[in-house]
Design a binder for these strands. Structure first.
Lengths: 462, 462
DNA sequence: AGATTTGTGCTTAAACATTTA
DNA sequence: CTAAATGTTTAAGCACAAATC
């Protein structure tokens, strides 16, 4: 066996010098990627500093910079000036969360939307099918939505505090689709977007896909901390910010009204583009006493407001409204066309009819009731709450012990029959001490099934 | 006035030295971008060689390389080793082509799909609304399509020569959506994709959006030239190839069967990823005698086959099938989820019912008849055809004089009441000598309107 | 056919900025 | 508060490859 004189050198990663081919930077990046994917380098591991690795490999240190950058671009590692370079928390796996009905697990993972109300939607869809203008819904016309459909959308959002006109609203295919469109139309690869430390995992994946870097900002019970945001803005060029003010996913924190103003001031000052995902507006506006208005109102010219109907009205029809300032309009229309051409006017018409007929309110009040019951049941099992939490959220953020292996925990619970997601999946940046589980309450078929799952969970967590 | 001693220096572009700030590369790129956008540098203009500009600015020539690269990334310029760097043909404008019914022009621009058949779709939509399982179409389940819907899709594509299973087909929201998903899931920014010299302008825009570079390959009456493709593959790293074999958009060329085999050999040899847009399969399979099979069959493990129903069945429902090799499956599902979550099962069900009920064939035969009549009329005006042209295409590729200004021509015709697109919009790379117009035949409301438009066009072209 | 023109890719060099001890 | 550690950014140098003349 060859005697490697560096065996006892205290470097966390020692690529095989002999395996290096030219171009070096590329070769190094490949070796690093392999070692991360194969699990030899665990998430959080600190890599050797650029200069140290360069010495070891007899290269200029900027060649290492380049190799590291390549891996950073792929989301495998992240670097912090002064501290070093580290393996990303979710480097080796995809954290996309989707519906998964191939197994018969109790699903506390994917957040569905209490699908028991879809009977009402089916009735309305039938009515739409009988309309004499049905044929007019089947062509290429009105790529951003037929005027009366947009008007209905504007009416719907009026109660959340949104006021806009036909030219600044577009119908797209759900919130995820809207986020994809917003990212691709307003940002470039390499741009940075500030997010909560814990944020919507599908947004993290989307950012990764578009090579947009997330800059995690700490928060408290009132939402993201303005000082921390300001600090990051001064340090590096940040291009945008992503917020879910009405009920953060996954933490359920609501941004309080005073905090919205504080954040808006920073966002304005640094010319950030705000992406506001207000999918939970229907659960918050008019219900939570502190609610005044969306952040869009405070920054109408530099914001994109996204209001999906998937959670509030119907998940399967894939309809969301996007509202944007005039500066973004041209770009937005272009991207909507490039990605969707248009959203089916038939689907949009069913949602429109739900709104115009008043059935939408009926659905919302049923969903609220279902959410109330589910939350009541949850509280019987896990009474401890945290300040700032949303009372009616479709999911809960459960604090757990700090020293468990996140993948193992998910596997353990799967074996016991429930699917849950560990807080590591929602990390936009560095690892944290505190650990949580996100428990979806809206995906079981009944309260009984929810109870069954909570039993298992409670028992497992002891 | 200041005397500039370089005024007579034969450089096509002389940035103001005094306007340069550090970082130089960035400053140069900005100045160049401004001059292109403001029209001071016309499309096709040759920029100064890197070394020459570097001398002029007293910088190392690789700094100019970097500045040029920045503009190339934005699609403003393109570089050819040995020849120089040039302003892109469509640098300053968006060439996205979308439906535009805000004006009362006769639309020969956007290619619609003879919307007169939508009455049949409306009837079938009504039937679907009466199904007792309607409610089951309204949730998050089956993100890639409900099994029976996928089966119907597979049946539909069977006659085009596609054979696949449930695991390798997904329902997405139209061809454009499918292309976006294919590009984002299988390519990285900076990757290169080979295309026909003239190609689908919305694909060009999509590639620009994702920062994927197109490498134009010349072709003849049988399609893209294999030797030219091979040449490019040997020269630079090419990652993929985009083809529309059943009826190229805009040229209407069909790739002949022998050519498919020749191209497949090159694609296999160089491990390219093939994106096959077969939106016109219904107009070609079983109609054009040379048709044997899609290229997907020749390269099943390295291809994505896209079959939209927008042109063949119904444009407004936004349903396309994607068929892919096993190697792409995981990536594909992830991207579909990230961009769409799912495609509305209601829309997919209407398309499914069209196929299962046999109404789909009825629609197709009506559309073919409409296409035949439109083409017959067109031939009365412009009898000269070119070898390899599709006989039933929804649009025609009309050769025109070489020395007209493309934007001016479009504007002139708009003033006369018709919208057409000049061949410059479809250029994936360098400018060419020959000029064409793409004339959509499928977007007028009647043959009379078509005739009216052709009259105007004929008169204008003299 | 060989020299010249022109763009590409990789590596190095140096000045800089931030964080941590 | 300063020094050390560590990552970032910009620019230059050089070998190379393709196209042109």
């Amino acid at each position: 066996m060859p005697v490697n004189s560096f065996d006892n050198y205290p470097m966390s990663w020692k690529p095989d010098k002999k395996a290096l081919k030219r171009p070096y930077y590329y070769s190094i990046a490949e070796l690093l990627e392999q070692d991360i994917i194969n699990g030899f380098l665990a998430p959080g591991t600190k890599l050797p500093p650029q200069r140290e690795l360069a010495d070891f490999l007899d290269l200029n240190f900027t060649t290492i910079t380049r190799a590291y950058k390549l891996c950073e671009f792929k989301g495998l590692i992240y670097a912090v000036t002064g501290s070093g370079t580290f393996v990303s928390p979710n480097a080796a796996r995809s954290i996309t969360i989707s519906a998964d009905n191939t197994t018969n697990l109790i699903d506390f993972g994917f957040v569905a939307s209490f699908e028991q109300t879809n009977g009402i939607v089916a009735e309305v869809a039938q009515k739409v099918a009988e309309k004499n203008y049905l044929e007019k819904l089947l062509n290429y016309n009105d790529p951003t939505g037929i005027p009366h459909q947009k008007t209905a959308g504007l009416n719907w959002m009026e109660s959340f505090g949104i006021h806009a006109d036909q030219e600044h609203i577009a119908i797209v295919s759900g919130a995820q689709n809207a986020l994809a469109i917003a990212l691709i139309s307003l940002f470039e690869p390499g741009n940075r977007i500030a997010t909560d430390l814990y944020t919507f995992s599908n947004f993290i994946e989307l950012a990764k896909m578009f090579h947009i870097q997330l800059v995690p900002i700490p928060g408290d019970q009132f939402g993201m901390l303005p000082d921390e945001l300001e600090k990051q803005c001064c340090q590096t060029k940040i291009h945008g910010i992503f917020l879910i003010p009405s009920c953060s996913n996954p933490t359920t924190i609501m941004i309080s009204d005073f905090r919205k103003h504080e954040l808006a001031a920073i966002i304005r000052k640094h010319h950030l583009i705000l992406i506001e995902d207000d999918i939970h507006a229907f659960l918050t506006a008019g219900i939570v006493s502190d609610y005044r208005q969306p952040m869009f109102n405070l920054l109408p010219e530099q914001s994109v407001y996204i209001c999906s109907t998937s959670k509030s009205l119907c998940s399967g029809l894939r309809v969301a409204y996007m509202v944007y300032g005039d500066a973004f309009r041209k770009n937005m229309l272009q991207s909507i066309f490039n990605v969707n051409v248009k959203t089916s006017s038939l689907d949009a018409e069913v949602i429109t009819e739900l709104i115009l007929s008043g059935k939408a309110h009926e659905i919302v009040s049923q969903k609220k009731q279902l959410a109330q019951s589910a939350n009541d049941l949850y509280k019987e099992y896990f009474p401890a709450g945290q300040p700032g939490e949303h009372p009616l959220s479709f999911y809960r953020w459960l604090s757990i012990e700090e020293d468990v292996d996140s993948s193992q925990l998910e596997v353990d619970l799967k074996m016991r029959g429930i699917r849950v997601f560990h807080s590591d999946r929602f990390l936009s940046g560095q690892t944290t001490r505190e650990k949580y589980l996100r428990i979806a309450l809206s995906s079981t078929n009944s309260l009984d099934e929810l109870k069954l799952g909570l039993d298992i969970l409670k028992q497992y967590l002891g």
